[in-house]
Design a protein around this nucleic acid. Structure first.
Length: 264
DNA sequence: ATGACTGGCCCTGCCAGA
């Protein structure tokens, strides 16, 4: 089972790139972030035509997450929102169980973590609180011992080696010590960073800013992650970044990241 | 060459992203 995460930065702007990717790469599960549209505006027919079931949690203008599952795999036990969202209606979390006749089931979440800038605004404590709520939810899910993949745009640069120029990110919400510590606390629940487990090299990036020639200069950062529970990590076969999609016309500023799990 | 973006929105500068 191949599982991809991709922040598309507006699904309406990116549906052509998405369906081309689905038809070429044929991932089994796709976790999308930053849809920037409401559920009824999601280009459902185009995605279904590529053979995928679609579950969305949309929001007008901002945020928005979705799960795509390729037939004959099936999707069930859909959860929208993270425990403790309360009055907060930001569409940042959707989760479901993916099952198939020839594979052990995998619970998959598509997560769009808050950016958190500026750090002296309420946005930063909101980001840290979201990471803590995610940690507690992950702990609860892992008790069931079903393979679990928490995939998405975490807006966290885990280590200096995950940035081309870590000094440029000093003081930023993506790289502050408290952000990195909260991410490590999540990992310490027993999760494995799927890409890092497969490829220890420097220079693996998933985001390049549109500005200042970041892409041609390869000034990237690694902030899109697939975190695997022990049952999922035991099945980890490979992981890769689909970097070429950043070079297309009108690209997202993020590229897809994919892990392959054995059937179990 | 000193590199200044992109998307969405109560349409036009402003917020948000990272």
């Amino acid at each position: 089972m191949r599982i991809t995460t991709w922040n598309v930065n507006s699904i309406k702007q990116r549906v052509g790139h998405l369906t081309a990717f689905l038809d070429e790469a044929r991932p089994d599960v796709v976790c999308l972030q930053e849809l920037k549209c409401q559920d009824e505006a999601f280009p459902r027919a185009e995605v279904e035509a590529s053979g995928y079931a679609v579950e969305t949690l949309g929001q007008k203008a901002y945020n928005g997450v979705a799960l795509l599952v390729r037939a004959p795999l099936t999707i069930s036990e859909i959860r929208r929102g993270l425990p403790g969202d309360g009055e907060d209606v930001q569409a940042r979390y959707i989760e479901a169980l993916v099952s198939g006749a020839d594979t052990a089931p995998v619970r998959v979440a598509s997560i769009y973590l808050p950016n958190g800038n500026p750090v002296d605004s309420p946005k930063y404590p909101y980001k840290l609180a979201f990471l803590e709520r995610l940690r507690l939810h992950a702990r609860n899910l892992m008790r069931a011992e079903t393979a679990l993949v928490l995939a998405g745009d975490y807006n966290v640069i885990p280590e200096p080696s995950d940035a081309a120029d870590p000094e440029a990110w000093r003081g930023d919400a993506l790289f502050l010590p408290q952000s990195r510590a909260a991410f490590r606390a999540l990992l310490a629940e027993g999760l494995t960073d799927g890409l890092r487990a497969c490829d220890p090299r420097d220079g693996l990036y998933t985001f390049w800013d549109y500005q200042a020639g970041c892409w041609p200069r390869n000034f990237g950062i690694r902030i899109d992650h697939l975190l695997l529970s022990p049952q999922a990590a035991d099945r980890l076969v490979s992981a890769s970044v689909q970097k070429h999609l950043r070079g297309l016309d009108k690209p997202s500023d993020h590229v897809p990241v994919t892990v392959e799990l054995s059937a179990g």
